[in-house]
Design a protein around this nucleic acid. Structure first.
Lengths: 162, 162
DNA sequence: TCTTGACCTCGAGTGGACTTGAGGCAAGAC
DNA sequence: GTCTTGCCTCAAGTCCACTCGAGGTCAAGA
């Protein structure tokens, strides 16, 4: 069982078949083909997929992940050290995310006490030390966690940064 | 200055004009209209917007936020206590998110040591106590933080949930 | 009167990470 | 021989929270 069919990879990795095809199209994983055109993945794809999932959980986009994967050595199978090197930078990102959430939670504790939610003062909804740079109505979370993009710019025909 | 035009609300709240119109269409905020059809928001919309922003930062979707806002008393202006009640549940959610991220980070520390990233063992990419329920290839993060939905179901024509 | 600017509606576009569907091939079971 | 299963490609659709553009209205000021 050197090479695996796409269905088997999906079953073993938990990554949907459609996602695997998508990853291949995007250059995140590669595979051989049978005479009939079916994909045949090497076992190493499982570790690669594990890396992709982990990286996504840390908040990386697929292009970022592809870039990281591109630094893996060609020809030889990546070693433990290779994977460790790749994931090393996540540490800082995670620390940042945890700090942002903690800050948000502590702000919440204060705000539950006063019930303020004031646009000018409340740590939950408004700017603070960290987020002030984003302008009015700034958000607390790190970009990776933020669901709200830092793009908004009040005013219709008025000044649009762009 | 009882009622505010949409541009003024945008300027004071940092929420874009287009977003305000969208929120109105989605039933998150309401307003009166002038004879000419222009929106006129009460001052209380500012606190409502602050709540929306805060809730988004905690990871709530707009439907969830609308639901929460629907529990506010009709007729009278919400009090500090009302707002505090609404945001009280966020605390648990934030705690959960912080725990998930911390777990991910600590798993990362362990994995950097061994470089494993094994699909069956690695804390970063695979199931653990927390995420086991999601099935194979489960993710660590709480749904609110997770970029990857827990939907995937390996197999092409095979069993699809739904 | 003309212009300006803020506002209006409605429909379409955005981006990321996929999923879904249509239409078809290849191999093993019966 | 045909049925089923698993695979293929390619294009289009999905979700979310908006944003953008076109084309038009309204009120105030020069």
């Amino acid at each position: 069982m050197e090479l695996m069919a796409i269905g088997e990879v999906a079953a073993r990795s938990g990554v949907a078949v459609s996602a695997l095809r998508y990853y291949e199209a995007e250059g995140l994983v590669s595979c051989e083909r049978t005479a009939g055109g079916a994909r045949r993945f090497p076992r190493s794809v499982l570790r690669r997929l594990a890396f992709i999932r982990a990286a996504q959980n840390v908040g990386l986009s697929l292009p970022e992940i592809r870039e990281a994967l591109a630094t893996l050595p060609e020809g030889r199978t990546p070693t433990a050290r290779d994977w460790a090197r790749l994931s090393h930078t996540w540490r800082a990102r995670l620390d940042e995310q945890i700090a942002a959430l903690t800050q948000l939670r502590d702000g919440l504790a204060a705000c539950i006490g006063c019930g303020c939610l004031s646009l000018s003062r409340c740590a939950l909804s408004n700017a603070g030390d960290v987020a002030a740079a984003y302008g009015p109505g700034a958000r607390w979370l790190s970009p990776a966690l933020r669901r709200i993009p830092p793009t908004s710019n009040a005013g219709d025909a008025a000044g649009r940064a762009g």
